[in-house]
Design a protein around this nucleic acid. Structure first.
Lengths: 328, 328
DNA sequence: TTGTAGGCGTTATCAA
DNA sequence: TTGATAACGCCTACAA
């Protein structure tokens, strides 16, 4: 039925261990043996059984990838990048979508634990303490969040914010709004902090609407406050909020981007299509996903000073249309 | 380090086999034994090692899920549904994104083979013959495509088309266009066939633009032909084409949907946001993904007449705005 | 350089 | 009802 190492051994006229060596460490067998084995393996179409290997070596060759919602284009992009890179590194990916549910998240992590060599956790919902426990068991790399000393890959939010604000200032905006996302979001806190710091250091007037739901509806809700405050530009926690803002601002007869510039984060692939007036700060998921896999693989191979167990992926301002405020 | 079945056995004062039975087939051990074992297992935090179990039983508890592009919202939705249902059935999901590459697809399938109990293949790119070979090795369920007798789950494209055309006819449209997708797409052929059949049987005039790229740009390219043919409604192979159509039609000064109704397929979640004028035929991915998992699980358990090795998921017309053509 | 033997954690078979 | 024992396929000392 299924062709095992023994079948190859028999056909090649050697022992199973020689087959193993010829395939795994070719330089530890005689050339002629190696060839015989390789030919036999090819002839039989032999592929080592990763399950059996896992039992023997304690390494499965699998990575566990946990995301809160794969239907979200942001995470889908991340998953794709992770997946591609993992395969290049000869790892398979066990996927777990937690549906934003903390309990489910920890549950899945436990189920997967025996079957993976390490975890990639995307913006995990679980609490710091839980995450630390997971990390004690198995190598873990967190994406898009920092918890204690756990290795992580994050986007350079501060630099992203810097790019936006520099851009807006160059266009003579002096009075800008910020629409915050969920208070529980680590990323939101990062962005908010960066906005405040930069606005202060550049002497800008900052109008904060406070937290809204990170959705189209949230953006709609925040619009009037900003209009009343007569800002000339708005930075939103994410693109969905930004789209809602644009819609409502426009409905109030104010033009975007001529009268108010709107900037969002996250670069949902279709956002540009939705409204070319939207300026976005993009998170190159490709780089982030690959970096995360590389980091985890390094961790697994023990080559990794504590120093570089954290990596940062760049963010990039994508300007589709933004104009300077009309002189007052 | 890691707690095994033996540790539990020792603590409970029984043999390993009893532990196994107490946990897997509780009714085959005495009640008192069962309790002792369960308590010991809980106390030690024992979780069976699925890898070892796999080696012994030949069943891994994993499903292989192969998709052409997970960044495509359509497949992301499918993946999410599959994933959720698989977990409910106590299966883990090994994900493979082939990047639309046939060679990669077969490669990945081979690598996964030893590590999964069966495959879910989403709109596979591989040729019929290759797919049949995979099916000979392991249970396979295909989504969104039919090849010979291989079990599959497909959307009811014919019924989707019927819904659209019935709807348009009710609004007095008599002259409608169809913009086709890739000739190599099985789904495209299905839809095209249904459109032709229904248009003929209802005495409609059908204007075919032929194949365009299934993208926004493809839609833009097809618009002028349709305008010249003065159709009052257009059905596009998918939503992206439809969005391109709307954009270009509008740019030509023709109003959508007042002058021309545009209908797309696939229900990209953001499509409605993009343009509320778009009418869509939605593919409930939830049902499709779950049905596929259920079918595969049935196959694995051998309970399955050849009769119902195929399942069909419904499609659903989502009307956001569509008007009747103005009287000529 | 090669082969033999033992074990990874679990389940299935067979006696007891 | 229970416990020994032998697989499952592979890897790795250790011995030859």
């Amino acid at each position: 039925m299924t062709v095992t190492i023994r079948d190859v051994a028999r056909l090649a006229g050697v022992s199973a261990s020689s087959v193993c060596r010829a395939l795994a460490t070719p330089d530890k067998v005689r050339a002629t043996t190696r060839e015989r084995v390789q030919k036999a393996a090819a002839q039989l179409g032999y592929h080592p059984n990763r399950v059996a290997r896992g039992l023997s070596t304690g390494r499965t060759g699998n990575l566990g990838l946990v995301v809160p919602d794969i239907a979200n284009p942001f995470f889908a992009g991340l998953v794709k990048a992770v997946q591609n890179r993992a395969h290049e590194c000869d790892f398979l990916v066990l996927l777990a979508d937690t549906d934003e549910d903390v309990a489910a998240e920890m549950d899945l992590i436990h189920t997967l634990t025996k079957q993976v060599d390490g975890f990639l956790l995307c913006s995990p919902r679980a609490g710091d303490e839980d995450l630390r426990l997971v990390g004690a068991d198995l190598p873990v790399v967190m994406l898009n969040r920092r918890v204690g000393q756990i290795p992580s890959v994050i986007f350079d939010n501060a630099d992203g914010v810097r790019q936006v604000i520099t851009h807006l200032v160059a266009l003579n905006h002096r009075r800008i709004g910020y629409v915050a996302g969920p208070k529980t979001s680590w990323v939101n806190r990062e962005r908010l902090r960066a906005v405040r710091t930069l606005a202060a250091s550049m002497g800008l007037e900052l109008v904060e609407t406070g937290t809204v739901s990170p959705t189209y509806v949230g953006g709609v809700a925040a619009a009037d406050v900003l209009l009343a405050a007569s800002v000339t530009a708005v930075i939103a926690y994410n693109d969905m909020i930004a789209l809602g803002l644009i819609s409502q601002i426009t409905a109030r007869g104010v033009r975007v981007p001529q009268d108010i510039s709107v900037v969002g984060f996250d670069d949902i692939p279709t956002a540009g299509l939705v409204n070319p007036a939207l300026t976005t700060v993009s998170e190159p998921k490709e780089q982030c996903g690959r970096a995360a896999v590389d980091l985890l693989v390094d961790l697994l191979n023990d080559r990794e000073g504590p120093g570089n167990s954290r990596r940062v992926a760049p963010m990039q301002l994508v300007v589709r249309q933004t104009t300077a405020p009309s002189p007052v």
